[in-house]
Design a protein around this nucleic acid. Structure first.
Lengths: 218, 218
DNA sequence: TAACAATTGTGAATTGATTCACATTCATTT
DNA sequence: AAATGAATGTGAATCAATTCACAATTGTTA
């Protein structure tokens, strides 16, 4: 747990970069590297050494001057900060296009995010097994979420119904929601909501092709 | 086309917010709203009115003082900036979990991103049709990309092979790549590369649950 | 064991993004 | 046609993030 005083100061970007560091450290571990410098770490994710050091410094001092950071140890520490050295009980709502992909997405499992239950409103899907996971009736949301001790809910339903569903999820006491529907959802202050907007980056590319084509990049 | 002088100054965040504005404007259009104020626009995406006005001001003045912005007209203008009032020829490489989901993702088509061809290295998939789209042999990448006049390539292959594939894509002259593999890919200066890291937001939620649980959010 | 090379950790400086605040403009009402 | 109200567009001010630069520390070499 990080200190009370630092709680309000760590930026979203820093946390996202911790994810990148974690990823690189996993690779370095496989390559049997014992230590890594901020320089090397930065190079592998196209960042600056100073940025790496500053990011890590928010959480403590993990390195050795003159040597660098111990790969395994730093990976463990970042894992602790990000909560990746444990498992999370995740529920998925909506098993259409995106939902199906998420069920089979190995990267989630590898990081401890375990999809325990799937909800859908399609009677043909309810009761069946989707890659070994039970598909429950969205009507039993609250009951099932509690029984499965779900901590994080992933929303992969059409934008038109996402707000209704998220309202029910919130009522069921869930405090962390990942939303794949392309719509801004309203949740109470004490609920963490993150959005995964799959067309945003494609739109950025489109913008870049039209506007940044010649000359330097933005 | 935006002016030469402004080319180097528009931030990534501004472009991403344009995507949000575009989304809201589409909804407002359906609701038959004729005009919208920066206040309303901001409210719908949890931003500030000043932010909305500043973002738009980088590209021109689209509003009327005292009235607000004309919904249809502004949508068209942002569409022009983001390149959404046209179609893009997109190729998808890798039709596994994620790839399959992308093929069926309506949101892409709606915004003009047309998946024209799919590549895979699995002999069982090659030659077949995936939701009406031809699956080609990754071995014929360069030839097929050119024949289909592809402008944007989406990479949805395992992280371990992504760099090899992106090298080939670059050799084929593609200048815009969207990468779903959880790895940092190297591309030349003149190629636009964007990453879609699907676990990053989940990791942020995990972090939030552990570190920000009580008290205010970061 | 002293000198050297490498690299961290971090205040200070800088750069960048957001918000403020207000003059300006337009539509509407009286 | 003047007064009123609403809302833009934008320079200035503020806030936040990144980079700089260097003292401090450690391992290694002579």
């Amino acid at each position: 747990m990080i200190s009370e005083s630092s709680k309000r100061k760590i930026s979203e970007s820093t946390i996202h970069r911790l994810s990148l560091y974690y990823r690189v450290l996993s690779v370095l571990e496989k390559e049997n590297k014992e230590t890594v410098s901020s320089k090397e770490l930065a190079k592998r994710e196209k960042l600056t050494p100073a940025q790496v050091r500053k990011d890590l410094s928010f959480f403590g001092s993990f390195g050795t001057r003159g040597l660098g950071y111990p790969v395994m140890e730093l990976k463990r520490q970042i894992g602790d900060i990000l909560g990746l050295n444990r498992t999370w009980n995740v529920a998925l709502i909506g098993v259409g296009n995106i939902g199906s992909a998420l069920v089979g997405y190995k990267e989630f499992q590898r990081q401890g995010f375990q999809i325990r239950i799937i909800f859908d409103n399609d009677q043909r899907k309810i009761g069946s097994n989707h890659k070994g996971i039970q598909v429950a009736d969205i009507g039993n949301l609250e009951k099932e979420l509690k029984e499965s001790k779900i901590e994080i809910v992933v929303i992969a339903v059409p934008a038109t119904v996402a707000q209704y569903i998220v309202d029910d999820v919130v009522k069921a006491g869930i405090k962390a929601i990942l939303n794949f529907a392309p719509v801004n959802l309203k949740v109470p202050e004490d609920v963490f909501l993150r959005n995964e907007n799959m067309s945003m980056e494609l739109e950025y590319l489109s913008f870049a092709l039209i506007n940044l084509q010649n000359g330097k990049r933005a």
